[in-house]
Amino acid sequence: MNQVALVGRITKDPILRKLSQDRVQTSIIIAINRNYKNTKGEIEADFILCSLFGRLAENTAKHCGKGSLIGLSGRIQSRTYEREDQSRVFVTEVIGDEVRFLSTKSRLNNDLYANSTVSKQQEVAESETNHFELPVQESKELPIM
C-alpha cells in the first residue's frame, strides 16, 4: 500500500509547466509542522516536495498562493536522473491525487505558467532540481500554522 495524506502550507506560488501532449504539471513544496518542540523550544517543520498534474495542477495554481493551507493525498514516488556533470540525483516526492483547499491566500504573481519554453530534457531536469531547496530568507518568513 502506498498512500500519503498531508496538511500544510504551500511555500511559494505554484507555477504551471506545459508538458508534451498539452499536459500541465506543477511542483509545490508543503511546509508541515512537527508535533514537538526542539531543545530550544522551537517548532520545526518538514518541507515535502509534491507534484501535481492536469486539472489538479491547474486548479491549485489558479486558487492557491504562498501560505495557502491545503490537504493533499497521493502516493510516494522515487526516481533518479543524471546531471550534466554525470552525478546521479535521487528524488523522492509525493504525486498528488487529490487536493483540498483549506485556507487559500492570493497569488503574488498572476502569471500561472513558467515563462520560458525548454526542451523535454531540460524540463524534466528543472522540475527535479529547482524545487528542493527553500531559501533561508523565505523559510524565516513562512507562516506555517
Results as ranks from 00 to 15, higher is better:
residue 1 M to S: 14
residue 2 N to D: 13
residue 4 V to G: 02
residue 4 V to L: 02
residue 9 R to L: 01
residue 9 R to G: 01
residue 9 R to T: 14
residue 13 D to H: 01
residue 15 I to N: 01
residue 15 I to M: 03
residue 17 R to Y: 12
residue 19 L to W: 09
residue 20 S to V: 05
residue 21 Q to D: 13
residue 23 R to I: 06
residue 25 Q to Y: 03
residue 27 S to N: 14
residue 28 I to E: 01
residue 31 A to L: 07
residue 31 A to D: 05
residue 40 K to L: 03
residue 41 G to I: 01
residue 44 E to Y: 01
residue 44 E to S: 10
residue 45 A to H: 04
residue 46 D to C: 07
residue 47 F to L: 02
residue 50 C to L: 05
residue 50 C to F: 03
residue 51 S to F: 11
residue 52 L to T: 06
residue 52 L to A: 11
residue 54 G to R: 14
residue 55 R to A: 15
residue 56 L to A: 09
residue 61 A to C: 14
residue 62 K to I: 00
residue 63 H to V: 00
residue 65 G to Q: 02
residue 68 S to A: 09
residue 68 S to G: 03
residue 69 L to N: 04
residue 69 L to Q: 11
residue 70 I to W: 08
residue 74 G to K: 06
residue 74 G to D: 06
residue 76 I to S: 09
residue 77 Q to N: 04
residue 77 Q to W: 00
residue 79 R to D: 09
residue 82 E to R: 15
residue 83 R to E: 13
residue 83 R to G: 08
residue 83 R to F: 03
residue 84 E to R: 08
residue 91 V to H: 04
residue 91 V to Y: 02
residue 91 V to N: 09
residue 94 V to A: 05
residue 94 V to Q: 03
residue 96 G to R: 02
residue 98 E to Q: 15
residue 100 R to I: 11
residue 100 R to V: 10
residue 101 F to R: 07
residue 102 L to I: 15
residue 103 S to Q: 13
residue 106 S to A: 15
residue 106 S to E: 13
residue 109 N to W: 00
residue 114 A to W: 10
residue 114 A to E: 11
residue 118 V to R: 11
residue 119 S to I: 06
residue 126 E to F: 09
residue 128 E to I: 01
residue 130 N to Y: 10
residue 133 E to N: 10
residue 135 P to Y: 04
residue 140 K to V: 12
residue 140 K to A: 11
residue 142 L to W: 01
residue 144 I to R: 15
